[in-house]
Design a protein around this nucleic acid. Sequence first.
DNA 1: GATTGCCTGTGATAATTCTTTCACAATTGT
DNA 2: ACAATTGTGAAAGAATTATCACAGGCAATC
Lengths: 290, 290
Amino acid sequence: MAAANQTISDRIQQKLDDLTRAERQLALSILENYPASGLGPLTALASSAKVSVPTVARMVQKLGYTSYPDFQADLREELGAIGKGPIAKQETWAGAAPSEHILNRFTDAVIDNIRNTLAHIDPVSFDEACRMVADQERHLYIVGGRITHTLAEYLFLHMQVIRPNLTHVQSTSNTWPHYLLNAREKDVFVIFDVRRYENNTLKLAEMARARGAEIILFTDQWHSPVHQLASVSFTSRIIVPSAWDSAATTMLLLESLISAVQTLTWDETKDRLQELEEMFDSTKLFRKFT
Amino acid sequence: MAAANQTISDRIQQKLDDLTRAERQLALSILENYPASGLGPLTALASSAKVSVPTVARMVQKLGYTSYPDFQADLREELGAIGKGPIAKQETWAGAAPSEHILNRFTDAVIDNIRNTLAHIDPVSFDEACRMVADQERHLYIVGGRITHTLAEYLFLHMQVIRPNLTHVQSTSNTWPHYLLNAREKDVFVIFDVRRYENNTLKLAEMARARGAEIILFTDQWHSPVHQLASVSFTSRIIVPSAWDSAATTMLLLESLISAVQTLTWDETKDRLQELEEMFDSTKLFRKFT
DNA sequence: GATTGCCTGTGATAATTCTTTCACAATTGT
DNA sequence: ACAATTGTGAAAGAATTATCACAGGCAATC
């Protein structure tokens, strides 16, 4: 049994870089359900991590143990030690940091935002919005402002894979009126507007509405003026201990929407994804492992 | 394995009266160091409780298990259930929607990601990264890939307000080698790289490192290869019920970092913010109320 | 584009450890 | 003294673990 002042969890994380792909997969699996998974039989651990038995044996030795049971003994000892100590903590997210640390305070706030936002959301509207975004007959315009531009782009990036017939508009640029020339009845505008609300965005929304397009709005709890014009509005709470607002909750909503739209259009999407994969493979832009 | 809604600890205590002297002695020993002692070998448990091996075997059967390993399996399962904190599982986030609705499933996953990510973060490294990013002597390069580009841009946007002397680099473009010409010792690169890891990004990181610059990396649980070169790495869990990965957790970390850097540089920042406000006022780009 | 080397899984085997269960003796309490 | 409980020692059986050789696959390199 190897002596250690740190937890085995720490030790594994520290060694993570010296490990190979399968070993890392195993290590992460152990950390995933820690420490329970490491206390079962070796074969069970191997199969739950989807690696082979020798891989487990090899890694345990890399971690400095003479055998798997040796490793388990250390785990048990650690588990026993926890029992003694003050068990109080659980409230802090980053356990290693004090509760006043910005990481903990910020995370507290974001979780609170998420809870609050989700509690007030209307799933029917959500589903409705998903259907609108998934409808490939309608041209999809995605509009972001100065800060929200990044969220808009994130949506655009994913929608590009999922469906054709879409446009990314920056309300901060002067070129957006050109795009509106093409907008037709029933087209869909996904608009992001949080405080400080942008005049350009409002004008754009008004003109879109005038042309008979429908608007899906992502805004904050104070409601962008675009709200009046929107068919569906998503309201996120965005308060955090910072000079700025948080986009994390809006991001969550957005990703949920993407996931839902993806499911709705899966039949068509999967071919596009397939093609994309092949293109990536051929360009070698990405690496497959390690 | 016997079904139970209660913990095994409860069950043992409940049965305590039906047990004989040696068995009770064993039971109390198990509860003494719960659950670690029950997860070791039977013989070890027997000797630590100072009872004989058959006594252990007999009692386990009295508790309703078919075998000692069966008992252990139940213990491990219970241990695994504890690992999941109290906040996540029970609740439906969007109360109006059924728990199988994508909104609830997705939010569950994100909360889980956040919990897991924060649990493994090192606050010392975090603070260190904040100091590096806040140091205006060093030029700050922000690097994003295909998907992470949006996160990079989000950081860039905020850093622009907080400090001068920074550059936004897209690893997907071909122009980045030009930027590297200006990179100097101790400059800071904030690099985003999640799967699928981009070869361009790795090359960029290597060259930055060769020039003596320091790297702060935002990656996922599988660790971008850039990890080896980084002074500080932030590892987010990014699994959600979707064909894509979630950026929400990384966004949270990022915003925490921004907030912390903002605090560190407040003296200089507040003037810049003031100026920015005035510029916005004069351009009438934003509306002050509603 | 071919080669080389590293990593990983497979299947098998042997060694080890752990578990179960004997019968019987010792102990305890009634 | 009787009956229930418990421990001893042992041995068989089961499960787990350690390890091997080998082949396939992937990636880096030239």
